[in-house]
Design a protein around this nucleic acid. Structure first.
Length: 465
RNA sequence: GGCGUCGUGGCCAAGUGGUAAGGCAAGGGUCUGCAAAACCCUCAUCACGGGUUCGAAUCCCGUCGACGCCUCCA
């Protein structure tokens, strides 16, 4: 039975979908005005794993991830660069899509954009006004009336009274209440704007997600995800808008990932301590980033530094070791030993799913995979042949795939394989004649060319890397 | 100040009532001409102080500390 921690109730709950076998999942994407950083990657990876596991469990997942492609920051950056804001947004959308592909993150089933959801946004704002949950202000803005929504604050666990104390007193004479937030912003000269019943303007930040949810998934969804820095105000406001509008509970489960920590601080655009996804991938494999995330708890802060990354890389290497072939002249295991290996893999699969069922405990799941690795390596050391290793290796491959790990070996050109094999053959002959200098030279030179050689009593193997 | 998360071996990190998963690092060993890899062995009583219980890392109270949100933010 799958259990999920729900931010809304602060409890781990049994996972039940609105519609049997189908999961409607909405994950907040990014505002496209700059290169996406590894913190965004963490969030995307977390929900990619959630999705992959749900699919592994047999659910059909409708996975929606939005792009916020019009807002203050995009406009500001575009002005600074002297670029058209829409062109700038498009450029970063393309970049981000590529980042996700490079990270082996499955494309969402739908990627709505604020600018392409304008009709729905406007009619939702209109509806909220009609129901008394919103009001237009003289300056062309439309605000949500937080005092009208009795449950406002339920996600973040705040009370309106508490928030007032700490709230920055804005020079916002237009608002009835300091915590009222903008559903629609009247356009200033030179800004991108759309026609609306309240004059030219553009949507506030939160309303687009409510509108996209409605348009893409309907009035109620199963999972709403994002970083925990979005709990307030973004998700709180989304709930307020959506539930006021439909009169129904919005999302059954709210899932939030923890923040990536760089040097003890959250990595964020405003702090400027950023490593872009592109920059990361120029130095490390995508599997390393994924392993870093998998080795921790998705809800907890994640330490991002050379030590944790090196460890993640080692973990990846270790998983790969399980996929290596048998020694060339392996003698073979007894039938009993071979089937024991297969059943060890089967039982590790049970541990894997038990861990993942427990609120996506990926660290526990990884431990189960290491059990398979150890069993395979032990069997190989005992002389198992490729055929005998295969069932366990297939299992390992399947389960690492559920976590989205590629575990690809570095690839050299296949054309050179015969020549490498020839060199190995020559070296084997040299070793028979105890010509150690020669065999070491071959080994060292091949290493320089990216080929790693390993000798065992059952023969010599090689691989790229 | 308010709300919330958390504090497990040198490092990362599972584990919510019954005597501490896993990985990395370290030390010892097997194998090997050497090396590498792999395998085997060793390595913690769970921030601190109280309490509840037959029994707590796990529940309660307090202290200290870290982090997040309260303003744009994955």
């Amino acid at each position: 039975m799958l259990k999920v921690y729900n931010t809304l109730t602060r409890k781990t709950e049994e996972f039940q979908t609105l519609e049997p076998g189908v999961v409607k999942m909405y994950v907040c994407g990014v505002t496209v005005y700059n290169d996406a950083h590894v913190g965004h990657a963490m969030s995307a990876l977390v929900f990619d794993v959630v999705r992959r596991y749900l699919e592994f469990r047999g659910y059909k997942v409708k996975h929606v991830m939005n792009f916020t492609d019009v807002d203050d920051k995009i406009i500001a950056r575009a002005n600074a660069l002297g670029e058209d804001p829409f062109a700038l947004a498009q450029r970063y959308i393309d970049d981000y899509r590529q980042n996700l592909l490079d990270l082996n993150i499955l494309p969402a089933t739908s990627n709505p954009r604020a600018t392409q959801t304008m009709k729905e946004i406007i009619s939702m704002v209109q509806g909220l006004i009609e129901k008394g949950y919103a009001y237009p202000a003289p300056n062309g803005d439309v605000y949500f009336r937080v005092t009208k929504e009795k449950e406002y604050g339920k996600l973040s666990g705040r009370k309106l009274e508490d928030m007032q104390a700490g709230a920055r007193i804005e020079v916002e004479e237009q608002k009835e209440h300091p915590m009222d937030f903008a559903l629609w912003k009247g356009a200033k000269p030179g800004e991108p704007a759309w026609d609306s019943p309240w004059g030219k303007g553009r949507p506030g930040w939160h309303i687009e997600c409510s509108a996209m949810n409605l348009a893409e998934l309907g009035e109620q969804i199963d999972i709403h995800g994002g970083g925990n820095d979005l709990i307030f105000p973004h998700h709180e406001n989304e709930i307020a808008q959506s539930e006021s509008y439909t009169g129904k509970p919005f999302s059954r489960y709210w899932m939030h990932n923890g923040m990536l920590q760089l040097g003890g601080e959250k990595m964020s655009k405003s702090l400027g301590n950023i490593i872009s996804i592109k920059e990361f991938l120029s130095k490390r494999d995508a599997d390393v980033m994924r392993m870093l995330v998998l080795n921790g708890t998705y809800r907890a802060p994640l330490l991002f530094n050379d030590e944790t990354l090196d460890a993640a890389q080692k973990n990846v290497e270790r998983l790969k070791s399980g996929l290596r072939p048998a020694a060339p002249s392996a003698s073979g295991l007894s039938a009993e030993a071979a089937s024991a290996l297969a059943s060890q893999a089967e039982s590790a699969k049970g541990s894997f799913t038990d861990a993942m069922d427990d609120d996506f405990n990926t660290a526990g799941a990884i431990a189960a995979l290491f059990e398979i690795v150890k069993a395979i390596n032990t069997a190989r050391d005992s002389g198992a042949n490729d055929e005998q290793l295969l069932p366990a290796q297939n299992m390992l491959h399947t389960l690492t795939g559920v976590l989205g790990l590629r575990l690809r070996d570095k690839k050299g050109s296949a054309d050179v394989d015969p020549f490498v094999n020839l060199l190995i053959e020559v070296r084997t002959e040299a070793r028979k004649q105890k010509q150690w200098a020669m065999s070491d030279l071959i080994r060292d030179r091949l290493k320089e060319l990216g080929v790693t050689i390993e000798d065992s009593k059952d023969g010599t193997t090689w691989r790229w890397g």
